[in-house]
């Protein structure tokens, strides 16, 4: 952004004091108004700033936020490693080496982070587990956005009985005991499956985004530009998608980002209880399953690695979310 030089005091540069400046007699533009507000600063010195749109300004603000940028970098490395490395190492995560179980970490290049009870490479398992965590996190949040975003938008825009019905439905969803639903669905569908986990999380967790979206639509539908769009002959669908939705997105993006970390932790908890992806497929949750046993043995690292991965990922996502929040709404800081 353009630097604003300190204001010169005394008679304004350009134009005699007391004389009516000619910019008052013609249509004033923002540039001119700025020139009036800040005498001495030429309009074109400020002209660089205003060409930027909302989203580009938000990106600039985000990049100025050092912690958030750092967190985004770390998150990028985690995502990249989770996506790329397992492709190269193939099924290394499931190859059992009975000669070398419980190999301590940082001892050999072959198994940098050591091996687990069955001699499987811990690093390969961690990265494979990262895939599970990130996939569940992202897919379930997409579910949140589709269910919560859709229902919230409809409730907020149309109001009336539809709003009432949808909000009471939301109340029902909120009062569902999540764990019992997971156990019941798992039992009913005949086994532990990752798709079950994603669907159940999405189906029971969307209400926060739903309420947020509804609140946004309630406010925005009363805005004059919505009425102006209607006066131009825009249909309801068009007004919802093109005119209101882009204005409603900022808090939704923040909530969705923070939602990803919440879901990753939730998936880990389910994995710990044995209700997420079944072995031999690793997830950070099921790697922690023998928690107590390992924590009190010499193999503490088998607990520390997945736990650290979990905490770092969730923390990075939360920091990125906070950064996005600040970038999209600088007033909240």
């Amino acid at each position: 952004m353009a630097q604003v030089p300190p204001l010169p005091f005394g008679p304004a540069a350009g134009g005699l004091p007391g004389a009516v400046p000619d910019h008052l007699s013609v249509e004033t533009t923002v540039d001119q108004e700025r020139a009036i507000a800040q005498p001495g600063v030429k309009a074109d010195e400020l002209a660089g700033a205003p060409e930027l749109g909302f989203w580009r300004l938000a990106v600039i603000r985000f990049l100025h936020h050092r912690v958030a940028t750092g967190a985004l970098l770390i998150l990028g490395v985690i995502v990249l490693a989770a996506v790329v490395v397992p492709v190269i190492t193939g099924n290394l995560y499931s190859i059992q080496d009975y000669r070398h179980p419980y190999k301590a970490p940082f001892q050999s290049l072959q198994h940098i982070l050591g091996t687990d009870d069955l001699g499987r490479d811990e690093l390969a398992r961690l990265l494979r587990g990262a895939r599970v965590s990130l996939m569940v996190g992202i897919l379930a949040v997409v579910g949140y956005l589709i269910i919560g975003g859709g229902l919230g938008a409809l409730a907020g825009y149309y109001g009336g009985w539809l709003d009432n019905a949808l909000m009471r439905f939301t109340d029902i969803i909120i009062s569902m005991p999540f764990l019992l639903v997971v156990i019941a669905v798992t039992a009913a569908t005949g086994g532990v499956r990752l798709s079950t986990v994603i669907i159940v999380i999405a189906a029971t967790g969307w209400f926060e985004i739903g309420r947020l979206m509804r609140a946004q639509f309630l406010v925005l539908r009363e805005q004059e530009f919505v009425q102006a769009a209607r006066a131009l002959g825009a249909s309801n669908t068009r007004i919802i998608i093109r005119h209101i939705l882009p204005n409603a997105l900022a808090p939704i993006i923040v909530s969705a980002t923070l939602g990803v970390s919440g879901i990753i932790l939730l998936e880990a908890a389910l994995g710990f209880l044995g209700y997420s992806i079944p072995p031999p497929e690793p997830s950070w949750g099921n790697m922690l399953q023998n928690f107590e046993e390992y924590l009190l043995s010499d193999h503490t690292y088998l607990v520390i690695f997945p736990a650290t991965a979990l905490v770092i990922t969730a923390l990075a996502i939360n920091l990125v979310g906070d950064g996005i929040r600040d970038a999209l709404d600088p007033r909240q800081r």
Binding site: Q223, F225, A228, A229, R230, G233
Partner: peptide, 25 residues
């Protein structure tokens, strides 16, 4: 009616500050 709005009959509003959508050029 939707076809007539904006095409045969247009309307301008009191508040030019809020009658334009802030996220589009």
């Amino acid at each position: 009616m939707q076809e007539i709005r904006g095409n045969d009959i247009s309307m301008i509003f009191q508040e030019p500050m809020t009658a334009l959508n802030p996220v589009f050029t």
